[in-house]
Design a protein around this nucleic acid. Structure first.
Lengths: 140, 140
DNA sequence: CTAAGTGCAAAATGTTTGCATACTT
DNA sequence: AAGTATGCAAACATTTTGCACTTAG
């Protein structure tokens, strides 16, 4: 999409270090703004939006769309999850919000299938399966 | 989630009969407005939104949320399709924005696989594969 | 010095709502 | 008559953008 950040700025740094401190938590762009506002270390909201977008592109955070009328959710994905490079799919529970990471051969197949038979190159980082997780299904 | 329409109005009637004429086609609320505007048979946009919402609740059409910043997509699902549970999967091109819908046996398999082997019930309506479509991949 | 990032306020977008009017039953 | 639906315009909320300014390399 875009060429991405090249300069290391104070804003990006503090944003990132904050995100690293809340792995697995999901938050909105506005949450981030408020957090920094209350810390006195403000970051302009355009910057927050722009940085979050960058981070999504870089695969450092994930973005979740629950409903077009509520704000988008983001979530920091711990580094280990990236590094094991065994391409990782994500399932997001719509009920409890849990994020499940799957390293699964069958899903790998699907990706190949979409590529070969439909000419569609799936972007795994961005793609999220929404649904209901085992636990939530059980208690329902 | 609401108590729904009780009166049969002209607007609802022509809206429905239009929808029935385009099964499997994706459209936005705005598309509907424009369609009727060009037909001279206008329906107010609030009415369009309200009726579409009703129809979603009634299970007559499906609503797809691709991205919070692009309009929601709707799709009339023919009665037979409901029965064969052949809801379709969506692929969204990150480059040109195209939305591709797939009725694909293999994807159906994945869904079953996730359910059976991972206990995860995929919500097809909300799940979107992001990636690069054939055309965009070609011209790159 | 140049390219990139920031922040503000303004625009854009898609959707919802208040309210007076019109239609269904 | 009573209860709904309609349509307009205004309101909303989130996200994006234009632009002048600052900062990193």
């Amino acid at each position: 999409m875009n060429v991405r950040p090249k300069y290391k700025t104070k804003q990006k740094e503090i944003l990132l270090s904050y995100l690293e401190s809340v792995p697995g938590v999901h938050f909105t762009a506005n949450d981030v703004c408020c957090h920094f506002k209350s810390q006195g270390a403000e970051i302009g909201q355009s910057t927050v939006y722009r940085q979050l977008e960058s981070l999504v592109d870089e695969g450092i955070i994930n973005k979740y769309v629950i409903d077009p009328n509520s704000p988008a959710c983001f979530e920091y994905v711990a580094r280990e999850d990236h590094e094991q490079e065994g391409v990782c799919f994500h399932c997001k529970c719509e009920k409890c919000g849990k994020l499940i990471h799957l390293h699964c051969e069958e899903l790998e197949e699907v990706r190949k299938h979409l590529n070969k038979d439909h000419g569609f190159k799936v972007d795994i980082i961005r793609t999220v399966f929404y649904g209901i997780c085992e636990d939530c299904a059980a208690e329902a």
